[in-house]
Nucleic acid binder design. Structure first.
Lengths: 159, 159
DNA sequence: TATTGTTATACTCTATAACTATA
DNA sequence: TATAGTTATAGAGTATAACAATA
């Protein structure tokens, strides 16, 4: 197994050696690549990817409060405030207070929000086509399956 | 396809609906989960994951300068300074200046650096075993293959 | 002029503590 | 007292500009 040192000098691919086998490193690189694309694409309709996530979630599960939506998306409620305020100011979401419990702000998409979401979904589909081209047949489904397993909380973590 | 609203209330799994099918979202969740584990594990030997990456890279490719190592790891040279200084202060790496070109600082692992890297590799292997358990047989290899494809720069991006 | 390392700075994402108003 | 939203703040990670020394 004595291998000669590899110097993949020429093209734009860099030989990072054993790093290419590290899950954390490759997740970082892949996430950044995908995020960069998302920022550019959604930026055209003035949305950041997390805000698109909020719209998408509210279309399916309207009527939740901020804490619930934030928890589902993995965003702490304090950090959620800025995101949702941005959407509120643009009249993409409605934050109503119920007459019974006046603490929670119940979230709904407005008509404008639904319209923008339709645009955003087109952008998203375009992004997916680009990624599908890279990942190959069945690649996206397999990737999502594996990422879901990684993201699941540890069972019986005796660490 | 009229599906009833899904309320996966009980366990710790949250129903995020269509978000679970978004590559960017799942990459973010998976990356964070893996990073959290890495921070805890490598924190025990006072390393942050990017610093482990530097040691790993230098063991395989010694004698490069900061800009080269940073570029290979996807870290800008300005942001690389703090990371490498931390390793230098702990005598894990040597930053020498050649007599010919006095600008670049040529990087090598010290004996201490090699010793710590051996410890770090054990921690890394332990992390991998944990991830392998989640990912199942062949999961890690497949995941790395897909992430590599995603991280590759776009060819002929006509955007 | 270009390159290497460096500093300073800013912006995003994330994390924690503390406040308010409600319950 | 507990909860929901909010504010402030701090820490990573990342990005850009500018500078000094060197080539």
């Amino acid at each position: 197994m004595t291998m000669p040192p590899t110097f993949k000098a020429p093209s734009d691919a860099i030989d990072v050696g054993p790093l290419a086998q590290r899950i954390g490193y490759m997740l970082r690189r892949a996430h950044k690549a995908v995020l960069d694309h998302g920022n550019v694409a959604f930026g055209r309709i003035n949305l950041r990817p997390p805000q698109y996530g909020i719209l998408l979630f509210l279309a399916r599960s309207p009527g939740r409060n901020q804490a619930a939506v934030g928890a589902a998306l993995g965003i702490q409620r304090s950090n959620f405030v800025g995101l949702i305020k941005g959407l509120d100011k643009r009249k993409l979401v409605r934050r109503s207070r119920g007459p019974k419990d006046k603490r929670p702000r119940v979230l709904h998409l407005t008509n404008r929000g639904e319209a923008l979401l339709r645009e955003a979904k087109k952008i998203d589909a375009k992004l997916d086509r680009r990624f599908d081209k890279k990942l190959g047949r069945g690649g996206r489904e397999k990737l999502l399956e594996l990422l879901t397993k990684l993201a699941e909380p540890d069972k019986g973590s005796r660490h």
